[in-house]
Design a protein around this nucleic acid. Structure first.
Lengths: 155, 155
DNA sequence: TAGGCATCGTTGACACGTCATCGAAGGGGC
DNA sequence: GCCCCTTCGATGACGTGTCAACGATGCCTA
C-alpha cells in the first residue's frame, strides 16, 4: 500500500495555502485590533454576547460550551481568566451540585457594548467589504458542508 | 458619530460564523490527526517542507520567517522546540555575526517524509473531497483578495 | 573612523488551547 | 440502600503564539 497518495494539484495547493494564510492573518489582525482597543478578544466577545442573550445574563458552563462548540476545559480556563478581569463571575448551581453558572457583570456588559461596534466594523473592513454576496453564499455553503462531514465522521 | 454601525445581516452572520467555525474545527482536527500519528504538527510540517526545498536543507531564520509569514520570535521559539526534538539544528552564520541557519537533520527528513502522505490525505479527506473545483476557485479568489487588502493596508 | 540607526535572533512574561486526570455529584439498576 | 457509570467542572502539564525588551552585530554617513 504505497504510491497511492493523491497529492495536491497546484490549484489545490494554492487554494489550501491561501485558505490557511487567510485564517492566520485575519485572526491575528482581528484579535490585535480588538485587544488593543477594547480589552475584549474575539473569544471574550463570543462569550459575552451569548451571556447578554441569555435570561439574567447567566448560562451553565456546559450550555455555553455547547453553544460555542468549545471543550469544557477550554471554557473553564477561559472563564477563569475572564473572571480575573472582572467581566464575569462564577455562581454555584443549587439544582445540580456539580454544576455552576457563568454570570456577566456590569463591567462585562459595558465591555461588550463598547466592543460590539468595533468588532463588527473590523469584520466588515477586513473581510465582508471585499467579498461579493455570491461569493459569500459559496463560502457559507462550503463551510457548512465541510463541518457537517466532520460531524458525521468523528474519526 | 453614533448609530452609524453597519451591523451584519443574518446571511453575513451565518457566513462569518461558519467561516470561523470551519477554521477552528479543521485546524483542530488536522493538528490532532498529524500529532497523534507522526509527531509532526502542521507548523513543523511547514518548516520541514521549506527546509527540504532549500539547498543543503538550510535557511536563514529570517528567510524562513518571511516565507512562512511568521514573526521572528515565533520562529525562534518554534525552532528551539523542534531542535529539542532533534528535527533541526541551529548553525552559526559566518558571513553575518548576528544571523543563524536552521538546518534539517536526518531525523527531520525522515519525519517529514513519513508525515507527508498522511498530511495530504488528511487535507483531502477533511476538505478537498467535499469541495467542487468551481468552489475551490472562488475560495482561492476570496483568500488572495482579502490577504492582498490586508497587505496594502497595514493599519 | 566614530556615532547613530537598523537588523538579527533571543528571551521572558503572558494569553490561549488541548489533553489527561481528578473529585464531587447525579441517576440508574439490583 | 448500594454500587456502577456518567456527567460536571477544575486543574496541571504542556505546546503554541504574541508582545516588548534586549544584546550583538552590521551599515551608513558625517
Amino acid at each position: 500500500m504505497a504510491e497511492t497518495v493523491r497529492w495536491l494539484t497546484p490549484e489545490e495547493q494554492r487554494a489550501w495555502r491561501g485558505f490557511v494564510r487567510l485564517h492566520e492573518r485575519l485572526g491575528g489582525r482581528l484579535g490585535r485590533l480588538l485587544q488593543s482597543e477594547s480589552k475584549v478578544s474575539p473569544a471574550d466577545f463570543a462569550v459575552l454576547v451569548h451571556l447578554t442573550d441569555s435570561p439574567r445574563g447567566r448560562q451553565r458552563y456546559q450550555d455555553l460550551a455547547r453553544a460555542l462548540e468549545w471543550e469544557k476545559s477550554r471554557m473553564s480556563h477561559h472563564i477563569a481568566r475572564m473572571a480575573g478581569r472582572g467581566m464575569v463571575v462564577r455562581e454555584e448551581c443549587p439544582e445540580d451540585g456539580r454544576g455552576a453558572f457563568v454570570v456577566i457583570t456590569d463591567a462585562g456588559r459595558e465591555a461588550v457594548e463598547a466592543a460590539a461596534p468595533r468588532h463588527v466594523e473590523a469584520v466588515r473592513e477586513l473581510f465582508m467589504d471585499h467579498v461579493t454576496p455570491a461569493e459569500l453564499r459559496v463560502l457559507t455553503e462550503i463551510s457548512e458542508r465541510v463541518i457537517r462531514r466532520m460531524d458525521e465522521d468523528p474519526s
